[in-house]
Simulated assay, not measured.
Amino acid sequence: MPLLDITNPAVIIFLIENYEKENRLRLNWIHKHREQIQQAATLNREPTNYFETDVIAHNMIAGMATTTRDHIVSGYNRRKTPLRDAVFVPGVKDLRHGHSIVDVGLGDPKDDSRLKRPDDDLSIDPIMRPVDPKVNKIIYKPRPEFGKNKYLETRSKTWPEKKYYFSECSNWDYGWRMKDSSLRQKPMYGRCWHLHRAVRTRVGPKPDPPYYKSSDPPGPTKIVNI
């Protein structure tokens, strides 16, 4: 919106008329609400002599009836016998009963002596499985054929599910204990599967199709007479 040209006589007349109209409306409003404005400005009201404690006490008295009612109801409910959903309510000492590593079939006390614990033992279950004694001896043999580096290299080739009882990170969720699944099947596109299918097929192994071979380079080609 362009700015008004205050040097224009028509604009000057327009502004003066609007200023006078606004002043007239303000005076009318003040004259109409003169008594309310004077009462609010002078605070000529009837004194109540209320203190802050009086206001708090008024709110407390209003809630005393509710407090009394709740006290009577709670006293009646405390005398009731609580309903039990089951005859036996398990406690902390029963948490491991039926849910330990041995009970769910993830470990055997014969292989890991740490799993031989009573039911009232609430210590934390072991995280890692015991190391194979043959692999454990590598770290104590001389280098360079054995030693720490050879031990770590051998351990890195072991599957995580053979080293841990549970999946310790989200990266292990994919493929964790896949052999236990009833839906597991042999890969149909692996090298061993192709070799097995070629040997067991009725016609025996055959060469690759022609479209698997690279095309002939441009130029004269050899023509084989049949």
Rank of each mutant, 00 (worst) to 15 (best):
D121W: 07
G175W: 03
T81D: 05
N59M: 12
A41D: 02
D132H: 09
L95A: 08
T158F: 03
I61Q: 11
A40P: 01
S156L: 13
F88Q: 06
N49L: 07
F146K: 04
H71Y: 15
Y76C: 05
W159L: 13
P90S: 01
S113Q: 11
N59Q: 13
T158N: 03
R114Q: 06
Y164E: 01
I72N: 07
Q39E: 13
I61S: 06
V55C: 03
A40K: 10
E145F: 02
K110D: 12
G63L: 09
K163R: 14
T66R: 15
L122P: 02
K134A: 05
K162V: 01
S170E: 15
S74A: 13
R96P: 03
G75K: 08
L115A: 04
L115K: 01
K150F: 05
S167N: 08
L122E: 06
A62W: 14
R79G: 15
N59I: 07
N44V: 02
N136A: 04
V87F: 12
V73E: 15
S167I: 03
G63A: 04
I72L: 13
G105M: 03
T81E: 14
R96K: 15
K93F: 12
Y50N: 06
G147L: 06
S167P: 09
M60A: 07
P109N: 01
A86M: 06
S74W: 11
R143C: 06
N44D: 13
D121T: 01
K150Y: 04
Y164W: 15
W172F: 14
D125I: 00
A57I: 12
Q39M: 09
K163G: 00
H97K: 15
D112T: 02
Q38R: 14
K80D: 00
I124A: 12
F146H: 07
M128V: 00
L83F: 14
T42D: 08
A62C: 02
V104F: 08
K163N: 01
A62D: 12
N59K: 11
Y164K: 03
N49P: 02
S74K: 14
T42L: 10
G63W: 11
T67N: 10
T48H: 05
L83I: 15
R117F: 06
K110F: 06
H58N: 08
L43I: 08
T154N: 05
P144R: 01
P82W: 09
S167D: 05
K150V: 07
I72F: 14
Y174V: 07
F88A: 01
R143E: 15
S167A: 15
A41I: 09
G75L: 11
I72T: 05
R79S: 11
N171E: 15
T81H: 07
I101R: 04
A86E: 14
L122A: 00
D119I: 12
G98M: 01
K141V: 05
I56N: 04
G175P: 07
S170A: 12
